[in-house]
Protein backbone atom coordinates (compact mmCIF):
# COMPACT_ATOMS: atom_id res chain seq x y z
CA UNK A 1 0.00 0.00 0.00
CA UNK A 2 2.95 2.31 0.48
CA UNK A 3 3.64 1.73 -3.20
CA UNK A 4 0.24 3.15 -3.98
CA UNK A 5 0.95 6.20 -1.87
CA UNK A 6 4.27 6.80 -3.55
CA UNK A 7 2.52 6.69 -6.87
CA UNK A 8 0.38 9.73 -6.11
CA UNK A 9 2.91 12.47 -6.90
CA UNK A 10 3.41 11.32 -10.51
CA UNK A 11 -0.11 12.29 -11.54
CA UNK A 12 0.00 15.58 -9.65
CA UNK A 13 3.16 16.39 -11.59
CA UNK A 14 1.43 15.60 -14.89
CA UNK A 15 -1.49 17.77 -13.82
CA UNK A 16 0.90 20.59 -13.00
CA UNK A 17 2.63 20.36 -16.38
CA UNK A 18 -0.62 20.27 -18.36
CA UNK A 19 -2.00 23.18 -16.36
CA UNK A 20 1.18 25.17 -16.94
CA UNK A 21 0.90 24.59 -20.70
CA UNK A 22 -2.73 25.70 -20.64
CA UNK A 23 -1.84 28.89 -18.75
CA UNK A 24 0.99 29.52 -21.19
CA UNK A 25 -1.47 29.27 -24.09
CA UNK A 26 -4.23 31.16 -22.31
CA UNK A 27 -3.16 33.19 -19.25
CA UNK A 28 -6.78 33.97 -18.32
CA UNK A 29 -7.17 30.31 -17.30
CA UNK A 30 -5.27 31.09 -14.10
CA UNK A 31 -7.85 33.65 -12.95
CA UNK A 32 -9.85 32.43 -9.94
CA UNK A 33 -13.14 32.67 -11.82
CA UNK A 34 -11.84 30.59 -14.74
CA UNK A 35 -10.47 28.00 -12.36
CA UNK A 36 -13.78 27.76 -10.54
CA UNK A 37 -15.63 27.41 -13.84
CA UNK A 38 -13.20 24.69 -14.80
CA UNK A 39 -13.89 22.92 -11.50
CA UNK A 40 -17.62 23.16 -12.12
CA UNK A 41 -17.20 21.53 -15.51
CA UNK A 42 -15.04 18.82 -14.00
CA UNK A 43 -17.40 18.20 -11.07
CA UNK A 44 -19.46 15.35 -12.58
CA UNK A 45 -16.34 13.48 -13.68
CA UNK A 46 -14.59 13.95 -10.31
CA UNK A 47 -17.62 12.62 -8.44
CA UNK A 48 -18.07 9.66 -10.76
CA UNK A 49 -14.35 8.89 -10.57
CA UNK A 50 -14.50 8.88 -6.78
CA UNK A 51 -17.25 6.26 -6.92
CA UNK A 52 -15.57 4.17 -9.61
CA UNK A 53 -12.41 4.13 -7.48
CA UNK A 54 -14.09 1.94 -4.85
CA UNK A 55 -15.18 -0.61 -7.43
CA UNK A 56 -11.72 -0.70 -8.97
CA UNK A 57 -9.81 -1.10 -5.72
CA UNK A 58 -11.96 -4.11 -4.87
CA UNK A 59 -10.92 -5.62 -8.19
CA UNK A 60 -14.02 -4.95 -10.32
CA UNK A 61 -15.29 -2.52 -13.02
CA UNK A 62 -18.47 -0.51 -13.26
CA UNK A 63 -19.30 0.06 -16.91
CA UNK A 64 -22.93 0.89 -16.16
CA UNK A 65 -22.17 4.25 -14.53
CA UNK A 66 -22.62 6.34 -17.69
CA UNK A 67 -25.93 4.68 -18.56
CA UNK A 68 -27.07 5.16 -14.96
CA UNK A 69 -26.33 8.90 -15.25
CA UNK A 70 -28.45 9.11 -18.39
CA UNK A 71 -31.26 7.14 -16.75
CA UNK A 72 -31.20 9.46 -13.71
CA UNK A 73 -31.35 12.62 -15.84
CA UNK A 74 -34.23 11.30 -17.94
CA UNK A 75 -36.14 9.97 -14.92
CA UNK A 76 -35.68 13.26 -13.04
CA UNK A 77 -37.08 15.26 -15.96
CA UNK A 78 -40.00 12.94 -16.60
CA UNK A 79 -41.03 12.45 -12.97
CA UNK A 80 -40.64 16.05 -11.82
CA UNK A 81 -41.90 17.62 -15.07
CA UNK A 82 -40.24 20.84 -13.99
CA UNK A 83 -42.05 21.09 -10.65
CA UNK A 84 -39.63 22.75 -8.18
CA UNK A 85 -41.51 21.27 -5.21
CA UNK A 86 -40.48 17.80 -6.33
CA UNK A 87 -36.73 18.54 -6.30
CA UNK A 88 -35.92 16.67 -3.09
CA UNK A 89 -38.39 13.81 -3.56
CA UNK A 90 -36.87 13.25 -7.00
CA UNK A 91 -33.33 13.31 -5.60
CA UNK A 92 -34.47 10.69 -3.07
CA UNK A 93 -35.95 8.58 -5.85
CA UNK A 94 -32.72 8.82 -7.84
CA UNK A 95 -30.70 7.77 -4.80
CA UNK A 96 -32.90 4.66 -4.51
CA UNK A 97 -32.45 3.95 -8.20
CA UNK A 98 -28.66 4.36 -7.99
CA UNK A 99 -28.33 2.22 -4.88
CA UNK A 100 -30.63 -0.39 -6.43
CA UNK A 101 -28.60 -0.61 -9.62
CA UNK A 102 -25.39 -0.86 -7.57
CA UNK A 103 -26.91 -3.58 -5.40
CA UNK A 104 -27.96 -5.63 -8.43
CA UNK A 105 -24.51 -5.21 -10.00
CA UNK A 106 -22.90 -6.33 -6.75
CA UNK A 107 -25.19 -9.29 -6.15
CA UNK A 108 -24.88 -10.59 -9.70
CA UNK A 109 -21.12 -10.22 -9.64
CA UNK A 110 -20.58 -11.85 -6.24
CA UNK A 111 -23.40 -14.36 -5.81
CA UNK A 112 -23.80 -15.44 -9.42
CA UNK A 113 -20.05 -15.05 -10.05
CA UNK A 114 -20.58 -13.24 -13.33
CA UNK A 115 -17.46 -11.16 -14.15
CA UNK A 116 -18.25 -7.51 -13.42
CA UNK A 117 -17.20 -6.60 -16.94
CA UNK A 118 -20.20 -8.60 -18.23
CA UNK A 119 -22.56 -7.72 -15.38
CA UNK A 120 -22.16 -3.99 -15.75
CA UNK A 121 -22.00 -4.07 -19.54
CA UNK A 122 -25.33 -5.90 -19.39
CA UNK A 123 -26.66 -3.35 -16.90
CA UNK A 124 -25.61 -0.58 -19.28
CA UNK A 125 -27.69 -2.14 -22.07
CA UNK A 126 -30.61 -2.77 -19.73
CA UNK A 127 -30.62 0.87 -18.57
CA UNK A 128 -30.21 2.30 -22.06
CA UNK A 129 -32.97 0.06 -23.39
CA UNK A 130 -35.29 0.83 -20.48
CA UNK A 131 -34.80 4.57 -20.96
CA UNK A 132 -35.59 4.23 -24.67
CA UNK A 133 -38.70 2.14 -24.04
CA UNK A 134 -39.98 4.41 -21.32
CA UNK A 135 -39.49 7.64 -23.23
CA UNK A 136 -40.17 6.33 -26.72
CA UNK A 137 -36.77 7.60 -27.79
CA UNK A 138 -37.24 11.25 -26.95
CA UNK A 139 -36.92 12.50 -23.39
CA UNK A 140 -39.95 14.40 -22.12
CA UNK A 141 -40.61 16.61 -19.13
CA UNK A 142 -38.20 19.20 -17.84
CA UNK A 143 -35.87 20.07 -15.00
CA UNK A 144 -36.71 22.91 -12.60
CA UNK A 145 -34.06 25.60 -12.00
CA UNK A 146 -34.15 24.53 -8.33
CA UNK A 147 -32.99 21.08 -9.41
CA UNK A 148 -30.43 22.38 -11.86
CA UNK A 149 -28.79 24.92 -9.56
CA UNK A 150 -26.55 22.28 -7.96
CA UNK A 151 -24.69 21.70 -11.19
CA UNK A 152 -25.19 25.04 -12.86
CA UNK A 153 -24.11 27.38 -10.08
CA UNK A 154 -20.41 27.23 -9.48
CA UNK A 155 -20.61 27.56 -5.70
CA UNK A 156 -22.94 24.60 -5.30
CA UNK A 157 -21.09 22.41 -7.79
CA UNK A 158 -17.71 22.99 -6.15
CA UNK A 159 -19.14 22.48 -2.66
CA UNK A 160 -20.87 19.22 -3.61
CA UNK A 161 -17.67 17.96 -5.21
CA UNK A 162 -15.59 18.88 -2.18
CA UNK A 163 -17.96 17.01 0.13
CA UNK A 164 -17.95 13.93 -2.10
CA UNK A 165 -14.16 13.91 -2.31
CA UNK A 166 -13.80 14.35 1.46
CA UNK A 167 -16.22 11.48 2.12
CA UNK A 168 -14.40 9.26 -0.38
CA UNK A 169 -11.05 10.07 1.20
CA UNK A 170 -12.28 9.36 4.74
CA UNK A 171 -13.98 6.17 3.63
CA UNK A 172 -11.02 4.78 1.73
CA UNK A 173 -8.10 5.94 3.85
CA UNK A 174 -9.46 6.54 7.33
CA UNK A 175 -12.00 3.80 7.89
CA UNK A 176 -11.97 0.09 8.48
CA UNK A 177 -14.16 -0.30 5.39
CA UNK A 178 -11.49 1.27 3.18
CA UNK A 179 -8.83 -0.93 4.66
CA UNK A 180 -10.89 -4.05 3.96
CA UNK A 181 -11.83 -2.85 0.46
CA UNK A 182 -8.16 -2.43 -0.48
CA UNK A 183 -7.40 -5.83 1.04
CA UNK A 184 -10.24 -7.36 -1.02
CA UNK A 185 -8.71 -6.23 -4.28
CA UNK A 186 -5.12 -6.69 -3.22
CA UNK A 187 -5.35 -10.41 -2.77
CA UNK A 188 -8.87 -11.75 -2.79
CA UNK A 189 -8.04 -15.25 -1.52
CA UNK A 190 -5.75 -14.05 1.24
CA UNK A 191 -8.34 -11.48 2.29
CA UNK A 192 -11.11 -14.07 2.34
CA UNK A 193 -8.98 -16.47 4.37
CA UNK A 194 -8.21 -13.76 6.91
CA UNK A 195 -11.91 -13.14 7.43
CA UNK A 196 -12.60 -10.16 5.13
CA UNK A 197 -16.21 -10.33 3.90
CA UNK A 198 -15.06 -10.08 0.29
CA UNK A 199 -18.50 -10.31 -1.34
CA UNK A 200 -19.97 -7.70 0.99
CA UNK A 201 -17.06 -5.31 0.29
CA UNK A 202 -17.68 -5.59 -3.43
CA UNK A 203 -21.43 -5.15 -3.15
CA UNK A 204 -20.94 -2.01 -1.06
CA UNK A 205 -18.39 -0.72 -3.60
CA UNK A 206 -20.95 -1.12 -6.40
CA UNK A 207 -23.59 0.69 -4.33
CA UNK A 208 -21.12 3.55 -3.73
CA UNK A 209 -20.46 3.71 -7.46
CA UNK A 210 -24.21 3.78 -8.15
CA UNK A 211 -24.71 6.62 -5.68
CA UNK A 212 -21.80 8.56 -7.15
CA UNK A 213 -23.46 8.24 -10.57
CA UNK A 214 -26.62 9.76 -9.06
CA UNK A 215 -24.68 12.76 -7.72
CA UNK A 216 -22.84 13.09 -11.03
CA UNK A 217 -26.21 12.95 -12.82
CA UNK A 218 -27.59 15.79 -10.69
CA UNK A 219 -24.47 17.87 -11.40
CA UNK A 220 -24.54 17.07 -15.10
CA UNK A 221 -28.29 17.70 -15.43
CA UNK A 222 -27.64 21.06 -13.83
CA UNK A 223 -24.73 21.88 -16.08
CA UNK A 224 -26.18 20.75 -19.39
CA UNK A 225 -29.91 20.19 -18.99
CA UNK A 226 -32.03 17.32 -20.27
CA UNK A 227 -30.29 15.05 -22.76
CA UNK A 228 -30.79 11.44 -23.76
CA UNK A 229 -27.02 11.10 -24.05
CA UNK A 230 -26.17 12.84 -20.80
CA UNK A 231 -23.86 10.18 -19.42
CA UNK A 232 -22.59 8.57 -22.62
CA UNK A 233 -18.88 7.81 -22.40
CA UNK A 234 -18.55 8.92 -18.79
CA UNK A 235 -17.82 5.41 -17.49
CA UNK A 236 -14.71 5.19 -19.67
CA UNK A 237 -13.53 8.63 -18.65
CA UNK A 238 -13.99 7.72 -14.98
CA UNK A 239 -12.13 4.42 -15.29
CA UNK A 240 -9.33 6.19 -17.15
CA UNK A 241 -9.14 8.88 -14.48
CA UNK A 242 -8.92 6.25 -11.74
CA UNK A 243 -6.10 4.42 -13.50
CA UNK A 244 -4.41 7.68 -14.28
CA UNK A 245 -4.53 8.47 -10.57
CA UNK A 246 -2.37 5.46 -9.81
CA UNK A 247 -4.98 2.78 -9.10
CA UNK A 248 -4.37 -0.62 -10.58
CA UNK A 249 -7.02 -2.41 -12.62
CA UNK A 250 -7.40 -5.69 -10.81
CA UNK A 251 -7.60 -3.99 -7.44
CA UNK A 252 -5.70 -3.42 -4.25
CA UNK A 253 -4.12 -0.10 -5.06
CA UNK A 254 -5.59 3.36 -5.45
CA UNK A 255 -6.00 6.66 -3.65
CA UNK A 256 -8.79 9.19 -3.51
CA UNK A 257 -6.37 12.07 -4.07
CA UNK A 258 -4.85 10.37 -7.08
CA UNK A 259 -8.26 9.68 -8.60
CA UNK A 260 -9.26 13.34 -8.25
CA UNK A 261 -5.97 14.41 -9.83
CA UNK A 262 -6.59 11.89 -12.63
CA UNK A 263 -10.03 13.37 -13.33
CA UNK A 264 -8.64 16.92 -13.31
CA UNK A 265 -5.77 15.95 -15.60
CA UNK A 266 -8.21 14.45 -18.08
CA UNK A 267 -10.33 17.59 -18.11
CA UNK A 268 -7.17 19.69 -18.49
CA UNK A 269 -6.12 17.64 -21.49
CA UNK A 270 -9.54 18.16 -23.10
CA UNK A 271 -9.15 21.89 -22.47
CA UNK A 272 -5.65 21.94 -23.89
CA UNK A 273 -6.62 20.14 -27.10
CA UNK A 274 -9.36 22.71 -27.53
CA UNK A 275 -7.00 25.64 -26.92
CA UNK A 276 -4.60 24.26 -29.48
CA UNK A 277 -7.52 24.72 -31.86
CA UNK A 278 -7.44 21.25 -33.34
CA UNK A 279 -10.35 20.57 -35.65
CA UNK A 280 -12.62 17.95 -34.16
CA UNK A 281 -11.81 15.16 -36.66
CA UNK A 282 -8.10 15.89 -36.35
CA UNK A 283 -8.43 15.87 -32.57
CA UNK A 284 -10.00 12.41 -32.82
CA UNK A 285 -7.13 11.21 -34.98
CA UNK A 286 -4.53 12.58 -32.60
CA UNK A 287 -6.36 10.93 -29.72
CA UNK A 288 -6.43 7.62 -31.55
CA UNK A 289 -2.68 7.68 -32.12
CA UNK A 290 -2.05 8.60 -28.50
CA UNK A 291 -4.25 5.77 -27.21
CA UNK A 292 -2.13 3.21 -28.96
CA UNK A 293 1.00 4.79 -27.50
CA UNK A 294 -0.67 4.80 -24.10
CA UNK A 295 -1.52 1.12 -24.27
CA UNK A 296 2.09 0.38 -25.14
CA UNK A 297 3.33 2.39 -22.15
CA UNK A 298 0.92 0.64 -19.79
CA UNK A 299 2.15 -2.76 -20.98
CA UNK A 300 5.73 -1.60 -20.53
CA UNK A 301 5.04 -0.53 -16.94
CA UNK A 302 3.47 -3.89 -16.12
CA UNK A 303 6.48 -5.75 -17.54
CA UNK A 304 8.86 -3.65 -15.46
CA UNK A 305 6.90 -4.44 -12.31
CA UNK A 306 6.95 -8.16 -12.92
Amino acid sequence: MTGALRRVPAIWLVLLIVTAVIIWRNPSFAEPLSLLTFLKRSAPLIVLTAGQLFVIVTGEFDLSAGALITACVVVAAKVSAGDPALTWPVIGLLALLGAGVGLVNGLVTTLLRVPSFITTLGMMLVLNGAVFLWTGGSPTGSLAPEFRQYGRETGYAVAVTAVVVAVAWLLLHRSRFGHLALATGGGTRAAALSGVPVARMRIIAFVISGLSAVVAAILLAGFAGLSKEAGAGYEFQAISAVVLGGAVLGGGRGTAGGAVAGALTLQCLFTLLNLLGLEKPLRDTVQGVLIILAAAFAAYRLRKEQ
Partner: peptide
Protein backbone atom coordinates in the same frame (compact mmCIF):
# COMPACT_ATOMS: atom_id res chain seq x y z
CA UNK B 1 9.91 7.97 -11.72
CA UNK B 2 10.20 9.07 -15.37
CA UNK B 3 8.62 5.78 -16.36
CA UNK B 4 5.80 6.30 -14.01
CA UNK B 5 5.33 9.78 -15.31
CA UNK B 6 5.29 8.54 -18.86
CA UNK B 7 2.81 5.86 -17.95
CA UNK B 8 0.54 8.36 -16.24
CA UNK B 9 0.65 10.63 -19.24
CA UNK B 10 -0.05 7.69 -21.46
CA UNK B 11 -3.12 6.72 -19.51
CA UNK B 12 -4.29 10.31 -19.51
CA UNK B 13 -4.20 10.28 -23.22
CA UNK B 14 -5.81 6.87 -23.36
CA UNK B 15 -8.85 8.17 -21.64
CA UNK B 16 -9.33 10.90 -24.18
CA UNK B 17 -11.06 8.38 -26.36
CA UNK B 18 -13.95 8.41 -24.04
CA UNK B 19 -14.56 11.96 -25.11
CA UNK B 20 -14.25 11.69 -28.83
CA UNK B 21 -17.59 12.42 -30.30
CA UNK B 22 -17.78 11.32 -33.86
CA UNK B 23 -20.00 8.43 -32.95
Amino acid sequence: MPNRLAASLAVAVLSLTACSSTR
